[in-house]
């Protein structure tokens, strides 16, 4: 994945996170934890990953989704899946 593609993907992911977490896009950091820092409960976290899976047509398994706890983790998962596609 090229650098500008990766950057665009990060932007899109952050936009979805901002929409579902109600935290301003500019305030979201890669190291943020979905629950503790962005106030997302387990249901909202799953909805986020589900929304990303639909947006980017990613094949995500629940086991993998349940292990993701940070914004960084979300981005890594999405990139890994897109590269594998």
């Amino acid at each position: 994945m090229e650098a500008n593609q990766s950057h665009n993907l990060d932007e899109k992911i952050l936009r979805v996170i901002a929409e579902l977490s109600l935290v301003r896009l500019a305030d979201i950091k890669p190291t943020d934890r979905l629950r503790e820092d962005l106030g997302m409960d387990s249901v909202a976290s799953m909805e986020l990953l589900s929304a990303l899976a639909e947006e980017f047509d990613l094949e995500v398994e629940m086991e993998e989704a349940m292990a993701i706890t940070t914004v960084d983790g979300v981005m890594e998962m999405a990139k890994k899946r897109l590269l594998a596609a």
């Binding site: 909805e47 990953l49 589900s50 094949e59 398994e61």
Partner: peptide, 10 residues
């Protein structure tokens, strides 16, 4: 519209 559909997609 807004729900976890990961298990359904698989």
């Amino acid at each position: 519209v807004r729900s976890n559909v990961i298990p359904l997609r698989s």
